[in-house]
Simulated assay, not measured.
Amino acid sequence: MTLELLMLYFPNLLIILTVFTVGVASPGPATLMILGTAMSRGRASALALSFGIVTGSFFWGTVAAFGLVAAMKTSADLFTAMKVAGGIYLFYLAFRAWRSALTTDQSLTVKASDSVSLGRSYVRGLLLHLTNPKAPLVWLATLSVGLGETAPFPFLILAITLCMLVAMIIFIGYAVLFSTPTATRFYISFRRPFDAVLGFLFGAAAIKILTSRLN
């Protein structure tokens, strides 16, 4: 991509990055999962989870870039299936959090991460984003806001790449922030009420997805 072309579409790029940054940084299921994982399982698991979420986001960004999301949006059956899958997965996360809240083990310590748990954390993050029906629509809206009909393909690739870097910075930042010793001590001290609230929020997110209408 030439410098002249970059300068021509630079305002569009700023719009895309601004919209995407606000969307990624806003509280949601991904942020909740990173928060809970960082406090309960440590930084390594939270980072693996973050990379899974970013991978899922990259998938939907690529799909949106090729215009497939707009085509998928016309399939009511497909989006209904995604809504059901996403809602069930969030209810599963809520169940895990509530089950942890009911556990009375007072000798809890943050669990050490191994290769198996890191892989599992990555898959959890990936599944969260792949089953979220709002994720492809957010990408579609983001690119639609900043792209004109004549936007060249190299600019599209640049926009997606920069959005992925933004997502990595934000999610990794959350993973590091929530896995500090202070955050860990807070979780150990208030684990049961914290997990209960986390379960409620996951449940609320599941209901919101299942009852939402995709326009």
Rank of each mutant, 00 (worst) to 15 (best):
T2E: 12
L8K: 14
F10W: 14
F10I: 01
P11A: 07
L13N: 03
F20Y: 14
G23L: 13
A25I: 15
S26A: 15
P27G: 08
P29C: 10
L32M: 14
L32E: 02
I34D: 01
I34Q: 03
L35R: 08
S40N: 12
S40M: 07
R41W: 06
R41V: 01
A46R: 05
A48Q: 04
I53A: 11
G56D: 08
S57I: 13
S57F: 14
T62D: 01
T62H: 06
A70N: 09
K73S: 13
T74P: 02
F79K: 05
T80F: 14
A81T: 10
V84D: 01
A85L: 12
Y89K: 08
Y89S: 04
Y89R: 09
Y89L: 12
F91M: 15
Y92G: 10
L93S: 07
L93H: 08
A94W: 05
R96K: 15
A97Q: 11
W98R: 07
A101L: 04
D105T: 06
Q106G: 05
Q106F: 12
K111G: 02
S117W: 06
G119F: 10
G125V: 02
G125M: 03
L128G: 00
T131P: 00
T131V: 09
N132D: 15
N132E: 04
K134S: 08
A135W: 07
P136I: 03
P136S: 12
L140D: 04
L143S: 08
G146T: 03
L147I: 02
P152H: 02
P154R: 01
L158W: 01
L158V: 07
A159Q: 03
T161I: 10
C163W: 03
V166R: 11
M168R: 08
I169S: 15
I170P: 01
G173P: 02
F178Y: 15
T180D: 02
P181V: 04
T182Y: 13
T184N: 11
R192W: 09
P193G: 11
F200L: 15
G203I: 07
A204N: 12
A204P: 00
A205I: 03
K208S: 14
I209Y: 07
L210G: 00
R213D: 10
L214D: 00
